[in-house]
Amino acid sequence: MLIELEQIHKVYHVGEVDVPALQDVSLSVARGEFLAITGASGCGKSTLLNLLGCLDQPTAGRYRLDGAEVSGLSWSELARVRNSRIGFVFQSFNLLMRQSALENVELPLVYGPPIPAPERRGRALELLARVGLADRVHHTPVQLSGGQQQRVAIARALVNRPALILADEPTGNLDSHSGHDIMTLFHELHAQGLTIIAVTHSDEIAQAAQRIIRMQDGRIL
């Protein structure tokens, strides 16, 4: 199993009040799976994604990623896990606006174990070619369309050869045509053996996934 969640609880403290965001969530994801998480907004799916992405820690419960215990790690250690194991694809792309596509894709390598600059650049160029942007490597995000920006983000997510891609509404900000292109790209990546977990409202993505998890009030249905 790539991911094993055991009885995960997450409680947010808002002032004096404790707001439970996740309750007793247990989940296993096998390597190579394409999983979609759906549910109404506020159901806890974003919280779950943040926990899976090591951007947050559970209040209680255990999380093993790739056989290693992740819950209880320090912020620095979580950063290292994110850097080496996880690639993020966000709804709003989250690219650095003043840097070129190439520099954006190189970014995760900068924070990883030292790699010579030419190799960094080579890997980034290779991935940009793979997402079909070989002729756009020096463009900044403002010079790219939404779909192109999302493809840069996917290239960035792949550059550290992660075990897991986490996508948060990856087509939410795109027109249907671009969204379709992105979905095709996810399919290809999945076909090549990558594990993908996507949070989505979109039926198209949900249908494309092998497994759909529905959430309500912080629980998996």
Binding site: A79, R82, N83, S84, N94, L96, L107, Y111, R156
Partner: peptide
């Protein structure tokens, strides 16, 4: 702030 978030998401540690 947003840039800091992006950098953290792709693996920048607090020290970085």
């Amino acid at each position: 702030t947003r840039e800091i978030g992006v950098r953290m998401a792709v693996g920048a540690s607090p020290r970085d």
